[in-house]
């Protein structure tokens, strides 16, 4: 009979033990610096190399470029950039291949919406998502 008495003793001790509950929506949950959250995109850095769209395993990135407005300069600048967060798995591969760190991860992770249409984020939205940007990439 000793066996289950030990168990009872253990649970009784836990009555006063430190609780591990996070009060998440009331108290924000801090994520470590490397956390892979919603991407931040800086259009000025993008060189439209298309690598992020190609590496994406779920093909959730769509982008188009346009010729540089300044005729002196070569290359392209970004025109549209969309990430579909319905299928994005936040795998970090787009930020890994980006040669200019135009796309980087942030620590923001709250994506819940009432409509799935809102999960389709465009260039402006991703540009404005500029808080808690990840330092190491």
């Amino acid at each position: 009979m000793l066996g289950f008495a030990k168990g009872l003793g253990y649970t009784f001790k836990q009555l006063t033990a430190k609780k591990v509950t996070h009060f998440y929506p009331d108290v924000p949950y801090p994520m470590p610096p490397r956390f892979r959250g919603i991407q931040h995109f800086s259009p000025e850095k993008c060189i439209v190399c298309n690598q992020c769209a190609r590496i994406c395993p779920t093909e959730c990135i769509q982008l188009t470029g346009k010729p540089h407005p300044d005729p002196e300069k070569k290359g392209k600048i970004i025109d549209t950039y969309d990430i579909n967060f319905e299928i994005c798995i936040l795998c970090d591969l787009c930020t890994e291949v980006c040669p200019t760190n135009a796309i980087v991860m942030t620590n923001n992770f709250e994506l819940a919406t009432y409509s799935r249409d809102e999960l389709f984020k465009n260039l402006n939205w991703l540009d404005d998502n500029n808080t808690n940007v990840r330092e190491e990439n």
Partner: peptide, 8 residues
């Protein structure tokens, strides 16, 4: 039961 399970 919550207290015993480290919850509030």
């Amino acid at each position: 039961i919550g207290w015993m399970q480290l919850r509030t």
